[in-house]
Every structure is written in C-alpha cells, then in structure tokens.
Design a protein around this nucleic acid. Sequence first.
DNA 1: AGCATAAACGATAAAAGTTATCGTTTGAGA
DNA 2: TCTCAAACGATAACTTTTATCGTTTATGCT
Lengths: 144, 144
Amino acid sequence: MPVKETRSFREVCRENGIAVTHQRQVLYEVMKSMDGHPSPEEVYARVKKKVPAISLATVYKNIHLFIESGVFQKVSMHHGSVRVEMNGEPHHHMVCSKCRKITDIGEKELGLVAKRSRLPGGFLVERYAVDAIGVCASCQKSSC
Amino acid sequence: MPVKETRSFREVCRENGIAVTHQRQVLYEVMKSMDGHPSPEEVYARVKKKVPAISLATVYKNIHLFIESGVFQKVSMHHGSVRVEMNGEPHHHMVCSKCRKITDIGEKELGLVAKRSRLPGGFLVERYAVDAIGVCASCQKSSC
DNA sequence: AGCATAAACGATAAAAGTTATCGTTTGAGA
DNA sequence: TCTCAAACGATAACTTTTATCGTTTATGCT
C-alpha cells in the first residue's frame, strides 16, 4: 500500500481545508491512475468498482473540489453549451476563468506560433486553436 | 434590404444542397450580425424577435447544419461533458476532428509559444491551452 | 476515548442543454 | 400548378450537471 501517496493526499486536503474521507481518497487515487481525459461518468464507473455505494453526486462534487483546489485541471474551459464562431479571420481566444467571457485575439496580437503541420505520431494539423486562459480586466477589478 | 447578402446566402445553400427557408435565412443573418460567441439559446432569443413562431429545435438543427457545412465553426471541439486533466506536466492537446480522440503533446514537442502574461485589454494570462486540430495517423489511413 | 458540530455523503429531484419524434407546412423542380 | 422530399413547430425524451435534504462521518475539543 503506497503510504507516500496516502500522505500526499492528506497534505492536499490539509492545504485546502477539506476533510479526508474514504470516498474522496479513493476517487483521488483512481483519477491519478487514469490515463487520458476521463469524463465524470467514466470516473464514476471506475470508482464504483472500489466503493459500490458511492453516489454520482459525490463524484461530481469532488471533481469540482479538486479542480477548484488546483489538484486537477479542466481540459478546456467547458463552455457549458456549444459556442459558435462566425469570425472567419484566423484568430484565437482569451477565456476569462471567472466570468467565462470569450474574446477574440488576432494571431499577430497573440504573438504566436510555430506553424508545424506535422506532429509526432503523424498527426496532420489543420489548425491551431489557442485559448489564453486567465482573468479579464474587469474581473481583475471586481472583488468577486 | 441587402440584396448582396441575400444572394450570398442563396449561394451558400446551393453549395450545400439545402433549401432556402425563411427561418434559415433570418437565422443566418442574425448570426452573422452577432459579435462574440453566442450559445444556441442566445441565438434563439435574437431570432425570435424577427420570427416569433420559430422553434428552438429549428435553431439547433440549423446551427448544426451551418457547422457541418463549414459556414460557421465550433469554438471548441471538446464539449459534451467536463474532461479532467490529471497530467501535471505542461502540455497541450492534439484533437482529431474525425474520431475526437484527445492526445497529449508536450510543450517542447509542439514547438510553441510566446509566453506573454499580459494581452491587449489588460487580460492577465494564467496558462495557454493549445489544441492542434487535425487528423490523427489512424484516421488518415482509414477511408471513413 | 467520547462528544458536539460542521462537513460530507447518498438518494433523488430538478435544471440546463441537446436531440429525437411526429404530424403539419413549405420550398424546389417537374 | 402539383408533387414530394425537406424543413418546420411542438413537445417528449435524453444527457449532463446541480440542488435539496435527511443521514452519516470526520474533526477538533475536552
């Protein structure tokens, strides 16, 4: 049994002022062991094998907690609904992590990018989509 | 009334083999006139002012049609459920537009990025999330 | 260790976003 | 103008996520 891992999880909890529960710990360890970019349902299915009585709500609540605490990250700023792009010009996005606003920024203004069309594994690039994730000017001013 | 716009919409429809309906045309023009990255609900609210009887389902169906036809684009490829990132190393993603698989790629392998922490408008960058969107090796081989 | 309290849990209802169904209406080509 | 496939509106259903609430558990204090 990995004592070191256990300790680091307890430390993570202490740092963030959250309780060390059995469900939380198993969830953390299962997620750590998963490759790729699982959805909450996939995580739930895996955790359920070890803690059959766990609730999906608990999985969601703790995934959020881990993300808020910075233990894990969201792959994308999950926009909640489909967003449509009508701007035909090549550009990227500034995404505010507080208010979720998406603002266009031109390729040149962003100051990017090596334009490689082949990546390792033979992946053929059609386009790059860059999100600069941070805090917009007005959210920096407001306290909330 | 913008005859030129009307014509270009008719051409778009002809190119894609879809009918020119009143709802479709109003939807197209409203979307063209909107700044930013509206959600289907926002588009629906706007279109409803001009075509009060329009159905939300029609808005969804046509937004999909426009995206499939390449008239507009999706802002982000991975939407549907939250995806969690457990890989702590700085990296980005290769997203296959055919099979939707998301593969990690290290910052150095990608050969990217200007590390600016301030962007125009005072936007404060916390991190960059880069999606290289294209076709993965196995999808290049397969015909479908 | 025992106890009080706040936090977390499970079950489940509800909300939000999206898709499917189906009967009716409409546009495109003959 | 007529025919028929396509598109429409209404709405049910489905998926994902969040909120509610009564019960259980972890934590800090004695």
